[in-house]
Design a protein around this nucleic acid. Sequence first.
DNA 1: TTCGTATTTCGCAAATGTACGAACAAATAA
DNA 2: TTATTTGTTCGTACATTTGCGAAATACGAA
Lengths: 96, 96
Amino acid sequence: MQEKITEEQKQMARFAKAMGHPVRMYILELLAGQSCCYSGDLSEDLPIAKSTLSQHLKELKDAGLIQGTIERPKIKYCLNQENWDRARELFRKFME
Amino acid sequence: MQEKITEEQKQMARFAKAMGHPVRMYILELLAGQSCCYSGDLSEDLPIAKSTLSQHLKELKDAGLIQGTIERPKIKYCLNQENWDRARELFRKFME
DNA sequence: TTCGTATTTCGCAAATGTACGAACAAATAA
DNA sequence: TTATTTGTTCGTACATTTGCGAAATACGAA
């Protein structure tokens, strides 16, 4: 009955949880393909309120998958490359 | 404002959501490594109640990632190979 | 039939997630 | 200064998830 769940498994679950919503998958796939985007552009593409979008972006940030940098008057979102690479490596090994 | 989220993104989010819990990642990684296991074995390895484990297995089944076959008196769980391959392919493309 | 084994379902509670609009904040434009 | 733009936070509502123990189910063994 001892704990057999590894830190890597916990980390993968954390990443997967962040990916576990269609809107967040959309955002991640967009960023993975073109590196960066603005929140406003997302808002135009997605049928959700801005406050809801803001929450989804926050979740992705909290999971470490993306990062936002201020470019007045907008905010530019990009993948957090270091953690994205980490996620890729974990999932690659997991699903190979 | 039209819907831009694809069916593939929804499917990936569905898989990711199922992977979004440490216990379920543990189970999936076990199955990915050795193909099959019994619920009772999992119950001994994991610090959770059997009813809770049963729910996690149900979620993985509902997401299509695993399947259970009765081998009295136990139930043998394996990856659902068809959907697992589908998931691997989706994530491989997504994270390449 | 009664017992034991393996697992699921039920009922419940607590925590988390999803979504919205209103209110707020920060900076620039008029 | 006031208005506009861009985005976050707050308050609220509802749905889903997570977890447990008790009860139910299914079947083979005694």
